[in-house]
C-alpha cells in the first residue's frame, strides 16, 4: 500500500490486494471528490504515512503536465461540496432507560456493569416527558428528532420505552416533527411481553453482538453465568419470524483484547442475516497489536463483501454505508458527533451531558431536566475539526474531528487526539475510497 499527498489531495495505490486492482485512487479532502490518477501524477506526490495528518513538502515541477493538473485540481472549489457547519439546536438525544444490566461485559465503559457507578433502576417517565416536550418545542417543523434508548440494559424496562415512544410520536405530530427511534440492547431479553412491545414500535434495533458464541460469551458474560449468545439467538429467531413494526435489525460488534478474530466474527454474524453490522474498536483499548488485527480483519471483511455482493453487500457494513452516502452527497462532516451542538445524553436521573460517556461525571454535566447550562455548552460551539486541531488532516471532512471521549481516555485531554483512533479511522477511509472509486467508475 503506497500513500501519497500533495497539499489537500491524497492518493493511494494498492499493490498487495487481489480484490482491489492496482489503479491509483485519489481524494480531494475539501471537495470530497474521488478520482483515478495515472502513475505520472502519483509520482509528483510525496509519500506519507497513515499516522500523520500533516501536509508534506511539495515536489514542485512546473514543466510537468501531471504536476500542473494536480495543482489545478487542488485549487478548484467544488460548488457541490456542502458545509457541515452545525448551529446549536438539540435534534438528537440518548436516553439511559436505566443504569443496571444483566451482563458484565469485559470492556464495558458504563462503569464495568452498566451502572456508570450509580446503579439506577427505571428512569422516571413522569420527569422525562416534560423534559422531552421542552426539547421538542425547539425543533423546527419538518426536522427530525432522534431518540436512542440505551442503558444499562434498556429492555429491562420496556414499558418505559413504550410510554416515551408513544408520547414523542403524539407530541411530534403537533409540531410536524419527524421522530426517529433506536434501541441499543444486549439482546438477551427479547421474549414474552418485551418481544410484543418491541414489535409494536417503529424502531431501529441494534443488538450488541461481538461475534461467534465463544468470542461473544467471553467478552459479554451474563451475571448468572448463562450463555449470552444462546439468549440472543432465541430472541433473534422470534424477531426474524415476525419483526412487526421494527424498521431494522443491526449488530454492533466490539473488537477487544479477548476478541480479535474480526473476520471470523463477520462470517458468523452475517450468517444471521442482519440489515447491517458495525465493527467498533473498544474505546479504552490501547494495544496497537489489537488494533492491527482490527484493521487487517476489517480490510479482509470489505474484500469479502465486495467479492460476494459488490456495493450492496459492502454497504451492509454500517460505517462504509455512511462514508459512501457522504461521498455521494458530497456532504462534509465537521463534527464527529453532535456533542454540545445538536446532541444530548440524558442519564437515568434526567441529568444532561454532552456525551454518552460523560454520565455520572459531575464536572461534565450540562444541565438537568429542562435546564441547560449554555455557558458550558458554548465551549463546544466550534467545529470538532477546529477544537481537536484536525485542520490539516486529509480525512477531516469524512471523520469530523474524532471522539473527545477517546481523546480524554487515552490522553487525559478531550482535545488531544488519540493516534490509534486517527490511524484506524484513516485506514478504513482509505479502503472505502478505493471501493468507492471502483463502484462509481463501473457505473458512471
Amino acid at each position: 500500500m503506497q500513500l501519497r499527498r500533495f497539499k489537500d489531495i491524497i492518493a493511494i495505490k494498492n499493490d498487495t490486494g487481489v480484490v482491489l486492482n492496482d489503479t491509483i485512487t485519489a481524494f480531494h479532502a475539501s471537495n470530497l471528490e474521488v478520482a483515478e490518477i495515472d502513475q505520472e501524477t502519483f509520482d509528483k506526490m510525496t509519500e506519507i504515512s497513515v499516522f500523520t495528518g500533516e501536509i508534506p513538502k511539495d515536489k514542485i515541477d512546473l514543466e510537468s503536465s501531471a504536476f500542473n493538473a494536480l495543482a489545478e485540481w487542488n485549487s478548484e472549489l467544488n460548488p457541490d461540496a456542502k458545509s457541515g457547519k452545525m448551529e446549536f439546536g438539540i435534534r438528537s438525544i440518548t436516553l439511559n432507560v436505566n443504569q443496571i444490566c444483566n451482563l458484565k461485559c469485559a470492556y464495558c465503559a458504563a462503569g464495568g456493569d452498566g451502572t456508570y457507578g450509580t446503579p439506577t433502576t427505571q428512569i422516571s417517565v413522569e420527569k422525562t416527558l416534560p423534559q422531552l416536550k421542552y426539547f421538542l418545542s425547539s425543533v423546527k417543523p419538518g426536522q427530525t428528532f432522534a431518540i436512542s434508548f440505551v442503558g444499562g440494559e434498556p429492555l429491562l424496562h420496556p414499558k418505559a420505552i413504550k410510554a416515551i415512544n408513544a408520547y414523542v410520536i403524539t407530541e411530534s405530530s403537533k409540531y410536524q416533527i419527524k421522530p426517529k427511534f433506536k434501541i441499543v440492547t444486549n439482546g438477551t431479553l427479547i421474549k414474552d411481553e418485551t418481544l410484543e412491545i418491541l414489535r409494536s414500535m417503529n424502531v431501529d434495533l441494534t443488538i450488541s453482538f461481538d461475534g461467534t458464541k465463544e468470542a461473544n460469551d467471553i467478552a459479554r458474560p451474563s451475571k448468572d453465568g448463562s450463555s449470552t449468545t444462546e439468549k440472543i439467538l432465541i430472541g433473534l429467531a422470534q424477531l426474524q419470524k415476525n419483526r412487526g413494526q421494527i424498521s431494522s435489525i443491526n449488530f454492533s460488534a466490539i473488537t477487544s483484547t479477548t476478541n480479535t478474530n474480526v473476520f471470523e466474527n463477520y462470517i458468523y454474524l452475517k450468517s444471521l442475516n442482519p440489515d447491517s453490522i458495525e465493527f467498533v474498536f473498544a474505546n479504552d483499548e490501547k494495544d496497537p497489536a489489537v488494533q492491527q488485527k482490527h484493521i487487517e480483519g476489517l480490510n479482509k471483511i470489505l474484500a469479502h463483501a465486495w467479492t460476494a455482493g459488490g456495493e450492496k453487500e459492502l454497504r451492509k457494513i454500517k460505517s462504509v454505508d455512511h462514508y459512501f452516502y457522504m461521498l455521494d452527497n458530497q456532504q462534509k462532516t465537521e463534527n464527529f458527533c453532535g456533542a454540545g451542538k445538536n446532541y444530548l445524553m440524558v442519564d437515568a436521573k434526567n441529568k444532561l451531558y454532552s456525551c454518552v460517556w460523560d454520565a455520572n461525571l459531575k464536572e461534565e454535566s450540562v444541565g438537568s431536566n429542562e435546564q441547560l447550562d449554555h455557558e458550558k455548552l458554548s465551549k463546544l460551539s466550534k467545529s470538532l475539526i477546529e477544537l481537536n486541531n484536525c485542520n490539516t488532516c486529509w480525512a477531516r471532512f469524512l471523520c469530523g474531528g474524532g471522539c473527545m471521549h477517546i481523546n480524554r481516555s487515552h490522553n487525559g485531554d478531550k482535545h488531544k487526539k488519540s493516534i490509534l483512533f486517527c490511524e484506524r479511522t484513516r485506514s478504513l477511509i482509505l479502503q472505502v475510497l478505493m471501493y468507492y472509486k471502483l463502484a462509481r467508475a463501473a457505473n458512471p
Binding site: 478520482a35 490518477i37 501524477t41 493538473a69 454500517k318 452527497n329 467508475a441
Partner: peptide, 13 residues
C-alpha cells in the same frame, strides 16, 4: 488525461 474524477450518485445512516 492525468485525473479522471468519478461521478457521485446523488440519491445513509
Amino acid at each position: 488525461t492525468h485525473i479522471k474524477k468519478v461521478k457521485p450518485h446523488k440519491s445513509g445512516n
